[in-house]
Design a protein around this nucleic acid. Structure first.
Lengths: 335, 335
DNA sequence: CTGTTAGCGCCTTCAC
DNA sequence: GTGAAGGCGCTAACAG
């Protein structure tokens, strides 16, 4: 902090501060000789520009803010990895916030970001979000790209995955494996992703002429204990032979319950889960997963945001839908 | 950005900017009536102070920087979660950087942080770090707390776990389970944590009068493919009946190789891994883990850093060593 | 090509 | 209890 500033460089070089500033920013109106001298001294004295001063003046913070429900989540941590990668490549810094799926927290973070602290926001919204006033026209206040958990019905720039198709494929996979009673662990109920996944499941059943039993749609919430008992009741009562879990978290109680009820996986019950746990295959060779390209989503979302910041128009095709991958396992029973 | 500032508040209230500023900072020299008026209008107009201006002037950014090798890692993402928690509680913001275990990247991030962008640093050093000139006396330049991956021999403020004891316990557990030939997957070789874990293993063997076979210490590096072949050679050649993995990453190829070589886990080979994968028990009931209190470490490290920033002296007991937990599993064979 | 001037929004003297 | 003035470090506008 007691470090060198532009004025000191200027004095030492017999130049004005303005010239030094321009030279450092590689302005075309400075002779290359001067640039040379300036850069040499800057390096020698370990000069680093003061970001606050520069932001205050230029209205550019070179900082992106990321708001996610949870950091300690296989999907989000990978997405942040992708974001950080893009940021670093372009000399941007990354601020992180967790909403813990709480709308007020989310809104409050956003508010605190409308002051120039960040140039743009990457947002995966809180699943609790229903009344999204704080998201309406957000893009007019600060460039924002939504990823994965995007609001439903707002005209936003989004990066998502093919939730409908992948849930459809998951259900079809189970049907083709012989399942007749496929339960669906419904989560992210308020979000487009959650709704689309459910639709994919429903339509796959319909297309294969399987009657839907409403009891097999288990609507889960944020309360783990409640989810557990809902799940346990449904599994013991309606005895599904297949399960699709809309989130990675719900697959765990599912395993627990099967162990408790002595239900053999995957012989008597086959499971498919949306999951980004890379280690899943080795830890459990019976779990078929729908794996999202998490890193790529973060990467893509950040790239899009930088494009927006560049005042480049974002074209329709830019707000991409990436494809998840269904990784089939468990065809051979566990030994 | 086109938002309200102190001057506008002042004009509207017929006060000076100075008075408004003081009122907002709850200065004792302002009448409570004025404070009331100021705060009311501020809330009404959605006033948010400009962080750059405030930082430039006050030399306080209310921002912590976190540098970790990888974000998408069960330990680090949990630790960041803990850090974010503390930060939010105290109105701090969190900047994230990944070194990817590269010393130059680490040094360059640190350099860019010495300009007031952050008030302090939370650092888990790159495992490649050997020549740590960039870390020497870092604390004199900017308050820094190291966690988990701390440098060896520098006089830093650290938050770590009981690596020695937990590796010792892991080895003892295997010995007591009947293992005679325990392999050790050695990682984090340059770091205190890595060295201490190895020592714990070695001493447990010694204390139980088990002769050390050097071939069973498999020194792993950053190259996954190379690690795989090292591991495969060692396992097939020296046929250990127990394995301790110093990191979560190395346990995966281990499983793969056992599957390939038709080695039954845990009947013929028992594994203990340092791991923070919460889902491990459900996904694989045979894997005994040494689980670090990752969230708590982040929480503790951030709390310590805030204490440093408060100019409170950090006392010896503050730089804590937290305890990992050995979660024993696999006593019953996989069905 | 380079210098002068001014001001981004805030906070901290110093005055009254 | 409040106001006026100056400056944090940098950059944009205007000169020359």
């Amino acid at each position: 902090m007691g470090s060198v500033n532009i004025k000191q460089l200027a004095r030492e070089l017999n130049l004005s501060a303005a010239t030094v500033s321009r030279a450092l920013r590689d302005s075309h109106e400075i002779s290359s000789a001067t640039k040379q001298r300036v850069n040499d001294l800057a390096r020698k004295l370990n000069y680093e520009p003061n970001p606050s001063a520069s932001t205050l003046r230029s209205h550019k913070s070179k900082t992106l803010a990321v708001i996610v429900p949870e950091i300690a989540n296989n999907f989000f941590s990978l997405a942040i990895n992708g974001i950080e990668e893009v940021a670093r490549q372009h000399g941007y810094h990354v601020l992180i916030y967790q909403s813990h799926d709480n709308v007020e927290a989310e809104a409050s973070f956003i508010k605190s970001l409308l002051t120039g602290r960040a140039d743009g926001i990457l947002l995966s919204v809180a699943s609790e979000t229903v009344n999204e006033i704080h998201l309406m026209d957000l893009n007019k206040q600060i460039p924002t790209v939504f990823f994965d958990r995007v609001p439903d019905g707002l005209n936003t720039v989004n990066v998502t995955t093919n939730d409908y198709e992948s849930a459809y494929d998951a259900a079809e996979h189970l049907i083709e494996s012989g399942c007749k009673k496929i339960a669906y662990l419904f989560a992210l109920n308020n979000l487009l992703a959650g709704k689309n996944r459910l639709k994919g499941y429903l339509n796959a059943l319909k297309d294969h002429n399987i009657d839907l039993d409403d009891h097999l749609i288990i609507t889960c919430g944020k309360d783990d204990i409640n989810n557990y008992s809902l799940l346990k009741d449904a599994i013991s009562k309606y005895q599904p032979d297949g399960v699709i879990s809309a989130t990675e978290e719900l697959v765990l109680p599912c395993y627990e319950i099967c162990q408790l009820l002595k239900i053999n996986i995957p012989n008597y019950l086959k499971i498919v889960s949306f999951s980004n746990l890379k280690t899943a295959p080795f830890l459990n060779p019976s779990l078929t997963t729908v794996t999202q390209p998490a890193f790529e989503m973060g990467f893509k979302a950040a790239s899009l945001l930088l494009k927006l910041l560049d005042n480049k128009q974002v074209e329709p095709g830019d707000a991409e839908v990436l494809n998840s991958v269904l990784i089939k396992r468990g065809s051979t029973a566990v030994k």
